[in-house]
Design a protein around this nucleic acid. Sequence first.
DNA 1: GTGTTCACTGAACGGTGTTCATCAAAAGTC
DNA 2: GACTTTTGATGAACACCGTTCAGTGAACAC
Lengths: 207, 207
Amino acid sequence: MGITERKERQRAELREHILRVARDMVMKEGFGALSMRKLADAVEYAPATLYLHFENRDAIARELCVRGFQELLAALEPAAAVKEPVERLSRLAQAYLTFGLERPETYRLIFMEDAKLSAELFQDKQHGEGPRSFALLVKACEDLKAAGRTPEATPAEQLAEVFWAGLHGIVSLKLTCTGFQGSPAEVLAEALVATLVRDPKPGKRAR
Amino acid sequence: MGITERKERQRAELREHILRVARDMVMKEGFGALSMRKLADAVEYAPATLYLHFENRDAIARELCVRGFQELLAALEPAAAVKEPVERLSRLAQAYLTFGLERPETYRLIFMEDAKLSAELFQDKQHGEGPRSFALLVKACEDLKAAGRTPEATPAEQLAEVFWAGLHGIVSLKLTCTGFQGSPAEVLAEALVATLVRDPKPGKRAR
DNA sequence: GTGTTCACTGAACGGTGTTCATCAAAAGTC
DNA sequence: GACTTTTGATGAACACCGTTCAGTGAACAC
């Protein structure tokens, strides 16, 4: 009875194939330019066939979103492995920027498209690559705080949110408001890290 | 020969009427939901008539963008009038957030839609409400720097860009990634200001 | 009164997402 | 092997979309 298994496998393969082609099209021309008909054409099936594998166009977007977050997490992880908190923050910032600016359409899809898309991906705060990516920033800020190098009154979690917001702001303004920001993204990232980090206080070191 | 004048006035009035209706529709359902046909229906003209007043749908978006930036500038100006730099920064942040969160679709239109839209509005760095809004932030950061309360190495302009990016990040993440940020926007705004501002250094006051 | 201008429109073109009855081939059953 | 059932795939349709353009009728100029 390997038939049902084979069918299931073929079905999964086609689904995967559709998603890969869709991903390529989105990366080239953006999600807005992805039409079900063009996608069907590209995979050499009739448009209606796509609906046997995905509920609708949004379902494809959702799937691509998940993969986008996986890529983001993968892009951040090397930087998150750095021990020294300040250096780690800086590396995380650079990695985030590089991801956003080199994959603009992916970035737009996961962070600047419809709210419904990314909202549900942040529901489960434990699993999911979105929350896990954020957790890396939180950890970095906690370590920074433990080293006594953050503004005292601000909790690490809030600091991480401000950090993420800053990074997202830099990337998304570069993507939409072309030519607004005067400074290069890397410079802004460094400036952002500089605002977060406080000089170590010699008086507190003995404590 | 008041006829041509009257015609011109009527023409301008209709154009204005179309824009007002378009603005209402965008504020209610977002720019994506604004269709030329529905707009034509709402103003009780045939769709083709709209093209006698606007080159295409994007031209309407551009016009609404300009108005959006005017509203943003108007929202920021009271806060910009505050003397004390730290307080001013805080007020600017709150005003920016309020604007973004209370007019989400306007905000999306001017900052999160197509790059072409806002790009050209930031070409002329002197005039235009976009650059002038940004100038308010730059001035605030310059005054903050003059008071010796910024990170020393970072120029005021860069600081302003980081500030704007932070604000934009907070607003746009609230708009797209609903439920991602744990903290309320106002709290994050305060935290953002806190990261930018340094304690006054008593040693430098005498200088 | 006649000619001209011009705001306006209906209909069309080519595109979109989505649905559904239909069909042929594969799988299951005897 | 013949018959029935299941099922992957589809063509055609529906209701939208932005945009164009020939045509029309009323207001204007003379």
